[in-house]
Write a protein that binds this DNA or RNA. Sequence first.
DNA 1: ATTCGATCCTAGCACCGCTAGGCAAGCGAG
DNA 2: CTCGCTTGCCTAGCGGTGCTAGGATCGAAT
Lengths: 192, 192
Amino acid sequence: MSVQKRKERERAERERLIVATARELAEQQGWDAVTTRRLAERIEYSQPVLYSHFRGKREIIGAVALDGAAEMAAALRAATSAADGPRARVTALARTYLEFAARNPAVYDAMFELDGGLAFANEDTPQPLKDAFAALLESLGEVAGDGVHPGLFTEVFWAALHGLATLTRAGRLPPEDTEPRVELLVDRLAMV
Amino acid sequence: MSVQKRKERERAERERLIVATARELAEQQGWDAVTTRRLAERIEYSQPVLYSHFRGKREIIGAVALDGAAEMAAALRAATSAADGPRARVTALARTYLEFAARNPAVYDAMFELDGGLAFANEDTPQPLKDAFAALLESLGEVAGDGVHPGLFTEVFWAALHGLATLTRAGRLPPEDTEPRVELLVDRLAMV
DNA sequence: ATTCGATCCTAGCACCGCTAGGCAAGCGAG
DNA sequence: CTCGCTTGCCTAGCGGTGCTAGGATCGAAT
């Protein structure tokens, strides 16, 4: 029986290796460079092994996205819990969100730009995604303002952050003015 | 000499056909379905003909993006010029922007999600893109509020619209509540 | 020791973006 | 009117992609 346990452990270990390697490769050279061949070579297994863990490349992207969502949720919670007062929390949240996107572009892409085959905004959304949204909701809900649904407010604020993150990284917005943009966003949107 | 003119005309005509066909195919079946082979077959020429007009697939995407930018700029101008007062203009602008993105998803992707090899936010940005941003600036600049740089305000508002557009279309946001989101955005961000 | 099942690799499919090289049609020159 | 040449186009193919079928190998259980 313990033999089987060991094999399961090794298998789970290898799955983590695949996801970590995919993420690393994507972060180093972009998702275009993450091919099944290269990935297989890096983990020192043959290509078909990948398909014994995941249905296809899309699912690997999805796994990276889930990891990233958990990480982002933790980062947001850490930042907001260290801030005093609603306004400081929202500002910290916004800065942390944008910084996460800027420092982990490949992971951010996996979460929001690429198709990882994940469900969103419905009941079978994976827990890490729900939790990341919950982290946003915790700090943003308290500044939604009277008569404004916290969920709706969170969606709009989140969309603004997402727009800033993607447009900046794609070169559509010059990156220097990030800070004044955040201030404007918080000043206007949040009811403090 | 007129023979040469005719040939140039025919060549330009064919280039328009390529771009229009690429757009059509992308809108019908998504950009993944726009392969050089399929595109060549649809225009009833062989693959290499595409490369006598464009350096590669990326440039074809870029051409679709430029077309789309011109169209979007026109739509925004039409909507805002038909509205009375700054607030009505901003609301009309936001609705029109989101509607354009929702009705022309492939074109919107070409403009903002895919790599069309276009320069942004610098001097050699193509005219249609500058013009589309100018159309945003015209209506948004007048509601930036005192002491807020109109360009900065436009960037933030645009980012919010872009975020709403992409997150909605990717299934990250439920599409039903678009209208209240727009109202919230205009209410809070615009100084009317 | 032998059987048998799980595990993994080699090889290959259909498709991708892109390009080299040759053929044929249409032009101007004699 | 014919010849040579340029121009424009197509066939064929290269190296890459995601993914899979089928066989070899290795270890556990009898």
